[in-house]
């Protein structure tokens, strides 16, 4: 069974087609890195997978349950609201810009959704939040507001917040792109730990070294299509497609 399965998804903004038929299936425990130039549709793909953007064609299944599927007439039917929210809770999302709740402390950021959405008791939610904070190395920050944190710390809180809902898969949308270079390491280390714990993840990233190291599979996207995918060693050292080769050549030079 796939944790998440997307079939031939299309997405357009106005007349611009951002995704031109993407198919992707992720197995439990798999770490998939998505790389590609800016504007290639990587982020949109993630946003479609967690229902922040709606697809125009194709289907998305989460643990075999349809989040969106194509009807006979070719239009896309989404699951009813309640079902949709239930399915979306299985996917955690970590944003480039963290999107922490500034009016809540670190601990409250993490417990807010478990308490309000998953209806977990406050005590239980807090205990689990403290465990997660320890995991991301921020136990001492539990009572401060996000404005007092560095970018790297904010992102680690955001990861803990996503994990608090016990998702089946975590999507990372360029988790280190908004960070100062010296702060990316601490965030990547947390993601590395998650990979070690067999968390299923899709990571959109520009950190090629990191992608190569943690991913079981690398997907190269360009102009709304998956150009090539394979194990990291193949993609990075022996790409089959010209476009992949030229992209890898460019980013490795840098």
């Amino acid at each position: 069974m796939y944790v998440i399965e997307a079939n031939n998804i299309h997405k357009r903004f106005g007349s611009f087609e951002v995704l031109k038929g993407i198919s992707l299936a992720v197995r439990e425990g798999e770490v998939v890195a998505v790389i590609g130039p800016s504007g290639s549709g990587k982020s949109t793909l993630l946003r479609c997978l967690c229902n922040l953007d709606m697809i125009d064609k194709g289907s998305i299944y989460i643990e075999n349950e349809p989040m969106a599927h194509e009807t006979g007439s070719g239009s896309v039917r989404y699951a009813p609201d309640k079902q949709l929210r239930k399915l979306c809770r299985k996917t955690g999302m970590v944003f480039q810009n963290f999107n922490l709740f500034p009016h809540r402390t670190v601990l409250q950021n993490i417990t807010e959704a478990p308490i309000a959405v998953a209806k977990v008791g406050r005590r239980e939610a807090e205990d689990y939040a403290l465990y997660l904070l320890e995991k991301v190395g921020l136990s001492d920050k539990k009572d401060v507001y996000p404005s007092r944190l560095s970018g790297g710390q904010k992102q680690r809180v955001a990861i803990a917040r996503a994990l608090a809902m016990k998702p089946r898969i975590v999507l990372f949308d360029e988790p280190t792109s908004a960070l100062d270079p010296e702060l990316t390491g601490e965030v990547l280390n947390v993601i590395r730990d998650l990979a070690r714990d067999n968390m299923t993840m899709i990571i959109v990233t520009h950190e090629m070294g990191f992608a190569r190291e943690v991913a079981d599979r690398v997907i190269f996207m360009d102009e709304g299509e998956i150009v090539e995918e394979g194990v990291p060693s193949a993609i990075f050292t022996a790409p089959r497609m010209k476009r992949t080769e030229s992209f890898i050549g460019k980013v490795i030079c840098l």
Binding site: N51, T91, M93, F95, N99, E112, V117, R161
Partner: peptide, 25 residues
């Protein structure tokens, strides 16, 4: 709008998002 998105991916309903996240800010 990142606040709405952050809330949405955590499963908040529109009203929960409004009263817990947006209005307090």
């Amino acid at each position: 709008k990142g606040q709405y998105e952050g809330a949405k991916v955590l499963g908040f309903t529109y009203l929960q998002t409004m009263f817990r996240i947006i209005l307090p800010q």
